[in-house]
Computed example of a mutant assay.
Amino acid sequence: MNTRRPPDRRPVAEVMTTDLLTVTADETVLMAWELMCRAHVHHLPVVDGDGHCLGVVDAATLTSTWEPTSPLRARRAVTTLLPRRGPMCVRPEATLAQAAAAMLSAERDNVTVIGEHGDLIGLVTARDLIAALAGAPGHDRPRGSCMPSMYRMEPVLPERQRDTVPHSTVSPD
């Protein structure tokens, strides 16, 4: 007897990613890009100091708004890339069908999963839904809490190249 639930009735808690790389609202677009590239992720939740999700920056939005000729634009706050409407949220007990409906309603490819107090506890992407539908085995994901990024990385030029590069009037921060 097969006791497995159909994919559309499974709770999002079974497929959500909980080991998330997040950034705080004051991080720059450049930092978000760097973190996404280094971590090989396509979605980067932006959280406030209390762990509440303000929105999710995705790689498509970041690359479509990138302006390589404007250093000031690369150093603007990552919150400038967030959709005007806040993130679409579901609870961990919501079904995959409900998560898919939320994504369609919001016209996004992700939905955040929030805990009892509105704190970010996970993320479900369209890829997660497709994997669940295909019956792909889930990889073990830690069930820990989401923490804002712990490191601040800034791209810098090596010492010997600093003197040969024209000086900019843009401040580092």
Rank of each mutant, 00 (worst) to 15 (best):
P142M: 04
A136K: 03
R73P: 04
A134Y: 11
R85P: 08
T61G: 01
R91G: 13
A97G: 14
V23E: 05
R4T: 12
R152P: 01
T28G: 03
L120G: 10
M31E: 10
G138Y: 09
M16D: 02
S168P: 14
P11F: 01
L72K: 12
T80H: 01
I114P: 01
E116K: 03
D128N: 08
S149N: 12
P158K: 03
L62R: 00
D109Q: 09
T63S: 02
G86K: 03
M88V: 13
A134W: 04
T17D: 05
A102S: 06
R5Y: 05
G115S: 08
R152H: 10
L157K: 05
S70A: 00
T69F: 11
V156L: 15
P92A: 04
H117D: 11
T3K: 06
R152Q: 11
T169Y: 12
V15A: 05
R91S: 15
D163G: 05
L35M: 11
T164F: 07
T28H: 14
R143A: 12
W33V: 06
P142V: 06
R38H: 11
V78W: 00
R9D: 04
S64L: 00
I114R: 10
R108I: 05
M150C: 14
R91W: 14
P83G: 05
R5P: 10
G115V: 14
E159T: 09
T80L: 01
P148K: 04
T17H: 15
R73I: 07
S70L: 01
M1Q: 04
M36F: 03
P92V: 07
M103Y: 06
I121M: 13
D58Y: 04
L21V: 09
R91T: 15
E67G: 08
T63V: 05
V41P: 03
E27Y: 09
Q98T: 13
M16T: 02
V124K: 06
L96W: 12
P45K: 02
V111Q: 10
S70Y: 01
D8P: 12
T112A: 12
A136M: 01
V165I: 07
A102R: 10
V23Y: 07
T28K: 02
N2K: 14
